[in-house]
Every structure is written in C-alpha cells, then in structure tokens.
C-alpha cells in the first residue's frame, strides 16, 4: 500500500526549493507543460528520434530544477506497472513498436508533470489554475482537500494501528470486513465534524461567504522567454522528428 501522505510530503518538500525552475511563474510552467504534453499525446508516428528530442527538453528542465534526479525518476516509475502491463499485452499481440511507444510516452509525460509539480508550490499552482479559468469552487476544493489530506490520513493511520493492535490471530474475514466498514464510518463522521469545525472557525473570524481572491503574481519577461523557448522546442520535436 502506498502512503498518500508520505508521498505528498516528498513532493511538497521538493516544491519549496529555490532553483531557476522554481522561481518561474506557475502560469508559464503550466502552459509549457501543456504544450509539451499535447505534443507528445498528438504524435501518432512515434520515432526513437522524437523520444530523444523530448527527453533532451525534459533533461534541460530537470537540470534547471536542481531536483534529485534518481529520486524523481523512481517516483515517475510508479506509472510503469500500469504501462508495462498494457505494453506487454501489446507486445504479445505482435506490435513491439507500439508497446515501446506506450511505455515511453506515459513515462515521459508522467515525469514532465512531476518535474513541474516538484518545482511549484501548490499555492502558486492554485493561483495559476484560477488564472486559467478553472472553476473557482473546484480550485478551492482542491486546496482544502490537499490541506486536510494529512490530517484525515493521520486519523486513518492511527485507526489502522489501533485495529492492528487488537486484531490478534482471528482469521475470519466476515467480522474483519465489518470492523473495516465501521472504521470507514468513524472516519466519515470525524471528517464531517472536522468540516463543521473548520466552518465554525472560519465564521468566527468573520467569514461571510466568499474567499478572498488570491493576489495575482507578475508575469515577467523571463517567464515569457522560458515559455516560448520550451514550447518552441517541444513543437520543433513534434513537427520535425
């Protein structure tokens, strides 16, 4: 089982670095990422030259991010079980080129998302999403979800420990199934009460229905240069290789 909280924690720590990539405007990074992903996704005649091209672009971003490359690659490799399964199926049905393309495309795309996310704090990301006209309520829900992920996951973790302590050697699945359902119920109740508590605390500080908009950041020349350079490189690979 993957610990959601721990993995979020790692990305969170990465995102607070101070590299050239970290200091760029989140809108520029997201837009560049979108161009890169769309270029990969829309390539139907996938060649190994294109793979090399996309990899070079991503390596440049990776170098500019000063993030730990092996750890990042390992994280991105979480995609591989899914990709590899389908690649294997494709390969067995005789289409080795396509099998390779599936793995390469999904890995490059996943790594690209990871590099951008690991170089952008979530607050900046939320600001950028709002600037890109993602519904405000959805952006807010994402922020609350992220904020309380740790709190609720901690609760779930403590309940697991408590259950494990008392589980003993009982092997019968039926009562354990019901115990797990009870745990989900308790977690639900705690979460609901937590939400009530948050709302009360917000109202106590004068909240009257709308969240203050996030202050916009300034889009500098360097952000524009990065966006153009990155996008042009991705397009060049898409069209020429």
């Amino acid at each position: 089982m993957r610990s959601a909280a721990r993995e979020t924690w790692i990305v969170e720590r990465w995102s607070r670095g101070s590299s050239p990539l970290h200091s760029l405007d989140a809108r520029a990074k997201l837009a560049a990422l979108a161009v890169y992903l769309l270029a990969i996704a829309s390539t139907s005649a996938w060649t190994q030259a294109a793979v090399a091209g996309y990899a070079v672009i991503l390596s440049a971003a990776l170098a500019a991010s000063r993030l730990p490359v092996p750890a990042l690659l390992a994280r991105a490799a979480l995609i591989l079980p899914f990709s590899a399964t389908f690649a294997l199926i494709t390969w067995l049905s005789g289409d080795a080129t396509r099998a390779l393309a599936l793995v390469e495309k999904s890995f490059l795309s996943g790594l690209a998302v990871l590099v951008v996310i690991a170089a952008t704090p979530l607050t900046d990301l939320a600001r950028a999403l709002e600037a890109f006209r993602v519904p405000r309520s959805l952006v807010l829900v994402i922020q609350f979800l992220y904020r309380y992920l740790f709190v609720v996951a901690d609760q779930a973790h403590r309940m697991r420990m408590a259950a494990a302590c008392r589980q003993g050697i009982r092997r019968n699945a039926r009562p354990r199934f019901h115990a797990a359902a009870g745990a989900v119920g308790v977690l639900f109740a705690r979460s609901w009460e937590r939400a009530d508590g948050i709302y009360r605390a917000m109202a106590a500080r004068g909240f009257h229905g709308t969240f203050p908009a996030l202050a916009p950041t300034r889009f500098r020349t360097v952000d524009g240069v990065f966006l153009c350079g990155f996008a042009l490189a991705a397009l060049a690979v898409r069209l020429m290789l």
Binding site: S3, V141, F144, Y148, M159, R160, L187, A195
Partner: peptide, 18 residues
C-alpha cells in the same frame, strides 16, 4: 467548500483501510 474538500481527503484516507 470546506466540507467538499475534507470529504475528498476522507476518500483518500478511507482507501488506506483494507
């Protein structure tokens, strides 16, 4: 909004319960 966000966190966390 807080309720929706926290319930999202709940779904994430509930997936830890086997």
């Amino acid at each position: 909004i807080p309720l929706l966000g926290v319930m999202g966190a709940f779904v994430f966390a509930a997936q830890m319960i086997n």
